[in-house]
Nucleic acid binder design. Structure first.
Lengths: 110, 110
DNA sequence: TCAATGTGCAACCAAAAAGTTGCACAAAGC
DNA sequence: GCTTTGTGCAACTTTTTGGTTGCACATTGA
């Protein structure tokens, strides 16, 4: 399997607690600017902006220009990439258990 | 919502490409020791051990003592925590869209 | 016009992460 | 017994990350 840059940037984006909180906030409250978010969170606007950049790179948020400020909103479709990876792991695991159990059945019978 | 250390350690564990590959390998091939894994991966055994420690902390793998060596195997249940978080985000998002559309309907009628 | 306000960019800092080497120790196998 | 092999721990290096401050620039509104 190729290293899949989108999977990498996605899981990397989800790895930080502040970014997950940003995602939760945007999921609940819709569009917000970096300055608005900075008022809610205990870090500076520039810190928020850095996180938003990472979320943008992971295609987890989109941005819209509104006059002089930029409004960020969630784009949750990309989260399916994470669940797809997890589901893939789980199916591989299940398949392996299945193979193992049929092997044990076979050797028990012989 | 509390910061939930398990969620943090889980997403942190999934954020690294090498660790995701370790998970894939264990899902496919079952039990492996750190030395066996180091033979497959381009890093040293100690590097592998560090990653396995992180996966243990996240409850994504378990370890079993077999004579002098330790065999690591996947424990995929914890992955549900990640999908649960994602599903929660998506339902919040859907609920918000729902609220928004009923609001728009209402204001259109008035 | 000009003061507020929102933004981006760059430099910087401290802490964490990924990986290494080196060493000590335990268990197998000859 | 002794050599081999697998392990853990500690120290170290380099890179990345999360966050800051400072500054320049654009847009808004009185």
């Amino acid at each position: 399997m190729p290293p899949s840059p989108s999977t990498q940037s996605l899981f990397l984006a989800l790895a930080d607690h502040t970014r997950r909180q940003l995602i939760e906030t945007l999921a609940n409250e819709g569009e917000k600017s970096a300055t608005e978010l900075a008022a809610i969170f205990p870090i500076t606007r520039q810190g928020i902006s850095k996180h938003l950049r990472i979320l943008l790179d992971a295609n987890l948020v989109q941005v819209r220009q509104q006059g002089r400020d930029k409004l960020y909103h969630l784009q949750p479709e990309q989260l399916r990439e994470a669940t797809a990876w997890i589901n893939n792991i789980q199916s591989q695991w299940d398949r392996r258990l299945q193979t193992l159990s049929t092997y044990l059945d076979k050797t028990n019978k012989e």
